[in-house]
Structures are given as structure tokens and as C-alpha cells.
Computed example of a mutant assay.
Amino acid sequence: MKMKIFLALVIILFISCSSAQIEDFSDLIIVFNEGHKSVINTDGKIIIKDLEKRLKITLVKYNVDRQIQVVKIDGKQVLIDNQFNVLRDFNYDVIHETREGGLMGRIDKDGHAIKYDLYDKEGNFLYSSKDPIFDYNEGIVLMNYSNGPYEGKFTFIELETGKVIGNEGYYTANAFSEGLAYVYDYNGYSAYINHEGEEVINGWVCDVFADRRMSSTYFSEGLAPIRLGIFEGADKVGYINKKGEIVIPMNFVSDEPFSDGLVAIADKYNHFGYMDKEGNWVIEPQFTSAGKFKDGIAFVNTDGFTYGSVINLAGEMIWVGQKIPKRSY
């Protein structure tokens, strides 16, 4: 059955490629256009008006940053790689991405989670647990145990050996990235630990609620966002290097990771632009929201009623997003 699905998909792709080459999912720039998921090139020209219709698939959980995607073919949910090879059935009630680029699938029964399965970035099965798998990267699983000695705590487990890394449980934590992981203990103390569980950056005492608002504390391209406490300016974010030195002062809003040498960040008026690692504006603040760059393009929102616009590294708009219909009361 899997082979038949694979052959059918290959035939579809061969026919589809006659007018526009589709060789690798990661090369696609997918935008919303007139109710369809369309593909544009870097000049903003539509090369495929309806990707799902062309490939005869439904995109379920997709992200061009990943090497694997979840799609439906003939109503069957499967995992494919970026060359559109079917890897396995993938029937889960909830699917989350991991920091590594893999996926975590959750199975529910009677409204309760009963099983969590972890897959790596190539779609290989890694680990199964009845307790919540929070994230995974660099060979280390971040668990949030629902019972036992670590109940309610975030705990790092080395997948190969099963050993606990760092303390036996943190109040909150994020997965490892570039060799370091952010942790927050029950005393309101924040630090970054290495793979041996040693604190390599520390010294911040943060308010738990202020700190948990940060969606990203990951190192990316050598820098990570940081915010201090509940004191004046607690909503302001800056960036540190791996020595713990502040390289971009805490004067800004947002906590996006660096990519393509830039970070999406907001000024005091909550207008988003893009800044380099020296703290210089490369693309001036002008957007209501902004995402990270990948291969020279980023998704932005230009106003409160437009979403899914695309810009290049020069800040030029190559695709204007859809308008959100205004509500009438």
C-alpha cells in the first residue's frame, strides 16, 4: 500500500513539474492566495496557484525549515520527506515540531493524552513515553513528567544513556541549542547549562511570570534573547553572546532568534524591523509583526488587516498578503 502511494505521488510530481519544477519542498515559498496555498518565486511571481491541488495532497503540518512534512494523501495521513517520498503512516491527534526539526506525535483517548512518540528530523522513530515529551535537540529529550519523582518538573534526559542532565527538575526550561539550554529553577534563578549540566552563563534573577512570557531563549547564530525580572523595563529584550555579555541592550520588544544574520525586533512604538548583530537597523521598523528570515525571505504583516506578506533581505516587498475581512457587528 505504501509503495502504491509513493508511486502515485511520483507520477503526480512528474506531471506537475512540466510547468514548474518541484524537486524539494524546502525550496518552496508558500503563500496564501485566494483561499489556496500558492507557490511564488523570489521575484514574487506565482509559479503554482494551488499547490495542494497540483500535488493532490493536503498539507497538515508543514514547515519549509524541516526535512519532513505531514500530509494527507487520499485521506490517509502520512509523513513525507522533502523529496516527497512517503516515509510512514503518521496518525496522531496532536503533532508538535521539535527544536531539532523533527516531530512529536501525541495520541489521545477519552480527552486525555496517553502516549507521546518522538521522531528525528529525518522521520526516524526515536522514543515513546506516556509522559509529555516537551522538546528534543542535540540528542537530549526535554521531558515534563506527569507523575513519579519528577512530577510537574522539566527534566533533561540524554536519549542514548538515559541519564539526567543538570538538576533533577526545573520549573521551566527550553531545549538545547548550539550546546546550551536555558533553565529556570523554583527560586526564580535563570541560567544556561551545557551538555554536562554545568552552568556556563548565570546571574539573572527573573520573575517567573515575566520570564515565561518569552517564547524563545535559544541561542541562534551565537546570540540569545534575555530579559530581566519584573522591574522597570521588564518587557524589554536584548541579546547576549555565549560569554553572557550583552551585545544588544535591553531596549526592544520581541525575542525572535537570529537567522540570515538578522533578527526581527520591535522598537518602542511596537513597529517591527530587522537588526544585525551589532544592533544596527538593517530594515527600519515598519511592520505590525515579522518572522525570521530563511534563505533570504521573511514573512511580515504590514498592518492589522493584512497577513502573509513576504520581503527579501533588502526589505523589498515581493508578495503582498491577504486582507483579513473586517467584522461587522
Rank of each mutant, 00 (worst) to 15 (best):
M3T: 14
L9S: 07
I12G: 03
A20E: 03
A20Q: 06
I22L: 15
D24R: 08
F25K: 00
I29M: 05
I29Q: 10
I30D: 14
N33C: 09
N33L: 12
K37Q: 09
I40N: 12
G44M: 03
G44H: 13
I46E: 13
I47L: 01
K49H: 14
E52M: 07
L55W: 07
K56G: 06
K56A: 00
K56Y: 04
I57L: 11
Y62R: 11
Y62I: 14
D65L: 14
R66L: 15
K72N: 06
I73E: 13
Q77M: 09
Q77I: 12
Q77R: 15
L79V: 09
N85P: 01
L87D: 06
R88W: 07
T98S: 13
E100H: 04
L103R: 11
L103S: 06
G105L: 05
G111C: 07
H112E: 15
L118M: 03
Y119V: 13
G123L: 09
F125L: 10
Y127F: 12
S129T: 03
D135E: 01
D135L: 00
V141M: 01
F156A: 03
F156S: 03
L159F: 05
G162C: 08
K163Q: 14
G166T: 00
N167S: 14
G169I: 04
T172M: 15
T172I: 03
A175I: 00
F176D: 01
S177R: 06
L180T: 08
Y189S: 09
S190T: 09
G197E: 02
I201W: 11
V205F: 11
V205G: 05
F209T: 14
F209V: 15
D211G: 07
R212H: 02
R212S: 15
M214Y: 02
S216R: 07
G222W: 11
L223N: 07
P225S: 08
V237G: 10
K242P: 05
K242E: 02
K243L: 11
I246E: 00
D255F: 12
E256N: 14
P257Y: 02
L262G: 07
A264M: 00
A266M: 09
D267V: 10
D267F: 09
D267T: 10
N270F: 15
H271S: 15
F272D: 06
F272Q: 04
G273V: 07
Y274W: 03
D276M: 15
K277S: 05
E278M: 00
E278V: 00
E278K: 11
G279S: 12
I283L: 04
K294Y: 13
V300T: 09
N301Q: 09
N301T: 01
G304C: 04
G304T: 01
G304H: 01
F305H: 13
Y307W: 09
G308P: 01
I311C: 04
N312K: 04
I318Y: 10
W319D: 02
V320A: 12
Q322P: 10
P325L: 02
K326L: 10
K326R: 11
S328V: 10
